[in-house]
């Protein structure tokens, strides 16, 4: 995309990455991960089950979410994929009847443990929701909201951070002249990119996306999808989607859920070309679901 007015050269990525996880510089061979190191898991579930009251939403599933890859969760409605996603940053804590068993690790520490600092967990595991949900505040204040919660920083540092987050979300050029305008005046697609910028401004390691394009038109969807591929260089991304083409386009790995069970989880290409299970094949070829 062209960024003629931008002071920095047109780069899809900001010069300074957010958060502690920094993708090794290209050219630095010593730091470049070997193919197997890419399998390092950001999140791993073992024998993970979840209930809403007496209804079991997830049945003892085990899977890995590799670092700096896009993992897509697909499956028909009510299959538990969103439930699984919302456990990864404990958003399910808001639902009093929800409980879980088994382990769900973020870089080796069980995030289900009662001792987990949920506030810190959510800073490390950001989330983008189905419907764009900007705060009824200015564009600037939306982005600055997260950073202001966690640290006090000077005016210019904050300005910088807001700019970088907006650039990372490919929104800077559209809004740089109206940062003080209400975020509610943006289009749906812009609002969703704003929400992504807001999520990465706190420097998360993992980004959870719950059907981020389902409320958007095709053009905005394309913009978000491009953004997802760009962001995956810096962030581990887990995306729930109903749209199988979208899963095929943006993800490296795909997990197919059916009726609360993980049927299959593999390289996206494999899932869509030669899945191991008949159910997966039926679903991805559109025979049901």
């Amino acid at each position: 995309m062209s960024t003629p007015a931008s002071p920095t050269p047109a780069s899809p990525h900001p010069a300074v990455p957010f958060g502690q996880l920094r993708k090794p510089e290209a050219g630095n061979e010593a730091l470049r991960p070997d193919p197997n190191a890419g399998r390092r898991s950001a999140i791993s579930a073992k024998a993970f089950s979840s209930w809403y009251g007496s209804f079991q939403a997830l049945h003892s599933l085990s899977m890995e979410v590799p670092v700096n890859e896009v993992t897509a969760l697909i499956g028909p409605s009510g299959c538990g994929k969103s439930t699984f996603l919302r456990w990864m940053n404990r958003m399910n804590d808001m639902i009093s009847s929800a409980r879980a068993e088994g382990t769900l690790d973020l870089h080796g520490t069980n995030l289900l443990a009662p001792s987990t600092d949920v506030v810190e967990l959510r800073r490390r595991v950001g989330m983008v929701f189905q419907k764009p949900n900007p705060f009824p505040k200015s564009i600037y204040d939306n982005i600055a909201y997260g950073p202001r919660l966690h640290r006090s920083m000077g005016r210019s540092d904050l300005d910088d951070l807001v700019e970088q987050a907006l650039k990372a979300a490919a929104l800077w050029n559209e809004v740089k002249d109206r940062l003080r305008a209400s975020a509610l005046g943006l289009s749906g697609g812009q609002q969703q990119r704003l929400c992504i910028a807001r999520a990465i401004a706190v420097g998360p390691e993992v980004l959870l996306m719950d059907e981020p394009c389902s409320a958007l038109d095709p053009r905005s969807t394309a913009a978000i999808e491009e953004l997802i591929s760009q962001l995956s260089e810096q962030y581990t991304i887990v995306i729930v989607t109903h749209n199988m083409q979208q899963a095929a386009r943006v993800s490296d790995r795909t997990a197919f859920f059916y009726e609360g069970r993980l049927v299959e989880c593999d390289e996206t290409e494999r899932i869509f070309t030669r899945p191991k299970h008949k159910q997966t094949e039926d679903y991805v070829t559109g025979r049901f679901g």
């Binding site: 940053n89 958003m91 808001m94 506030v119 810190e120 967990l121 959510r122 800073r123 950001g126 989330m127 929701f129 419907k131 949900n133 900007p134 705060f135 009824p136 909201y145 997260g146 919660l149 966690h150 929400c195 807001r198 999520a199 706190v202």
Partner: peptide
């Protein structure tokens, strides 16, 4: 959704 947005940022 506004509460979720805020909580998901670690507030």
């Amino acid at each position: 959704s506004l509460r979720e947005a805020s909580l998901a940022l670690g507030s």
